[in-house]
Amino acid sequence: MNILVNYVVIPLVKIVVIVAILSGGIAYLTLMERKVIARLQHRLGPMRVGWHGILQPIADGLKFIIKEDIIPIKADRFVFTIAPGISLVPAFIVFSVIPFGPPDSLWGTGGYVTDVNIALLFAVAVSSVGVLGVILGGWASNSKYPLLGALRSSAQMVSYEVAMGFGIIGVLLVANSLSLVEIVEKQRSMGVWFFFVQPIAFLIYYFCGMAETNRLPFDLPEAETELVGGFHTEYSGFRFSLFFIAEYANMITVSSLAVTLFFGGWLRPFSSVAALSFLDIIPPPLWFVIKVLIFLYIFIWVRGTLPRFRFDQLMRIGWKVFLPVAMANVMVTGAILLKFL
């Protein structure tokens, strides 16, 4: 009975809650993006649906569901149908290992769905599966622009995953663990966020994360002014919205991992300074959310500011800048750890 409760009921409840929060979060992330971009561009953004457009995501969702779902006659129906799902599911699965609160929170069950010993590897591995949806969707459309988009994204994802992996290894060396909970705990015991220990690793991780999520300035697979819509040119209605949701879910994933790895996860700022304990008035999960929101804001800010890279420039940066720097970072970190610790 106890096993049933511990291993089935509690995780199920947590999964349902997280999926619900995440779905709502994604919906309102789209509103946040439109509002922030609008402010950057001297516009108002959505204003009509509800107070200051507060109900806009619901209207958008309804629109996506009601719209006709078109499958091109020359498309590979089976692959075309499942591709958005392949893209969406991994984006959600990653959240099963991301800790939102300390292990003793939520009546001792831990502020996460599960704490596996390879959580970080799991997160990176699973989010790398999502790109298959993009590639298959682009191929299955049997159209030229989507195919070009699919080719671009497969090359882009594979290149940037390598650099991202090496960036993360820097954190691993310091934290000595793949468990995300332990990584945060380590930051607490060391009394310093890993950003200050591994700033280069953070920058590489965050830029590669932008590339992995197809966001400007790395949004080449969908570059609407070049490839019309890239891999999702032929998608419409609900299926298109799945790709869309996956992109935003990935944005949240990258931000969450950045917060967990480099900015102390659920910890409040200066968690070791007792004088600032009044900050504890904000509960740990809220600190986590606040930090994630800051990173999401940077995503949107960058989109509003920068132009897009060209494909060859993108590959050059990935292979000739990010990867060597990340590798050098790993070596230097390792050497310092060996010498002094």
Partner: peptide, 26 residues
């Protein structure tokens, strides 16, 4: 063997299969 499982997904599914598809699409 959790590590193996993770590496399996990361390397084979997320890496090698992407390259496979890249070639097949061409």
């Amino acid at each position: 063997a959790e590590l193996l499982a993770g590496v399996q997904i990361l390397v084979y599914v997320g890496g090698i299969m992407v390259l496979f598809l890249f070639v097949i699409m061409l």
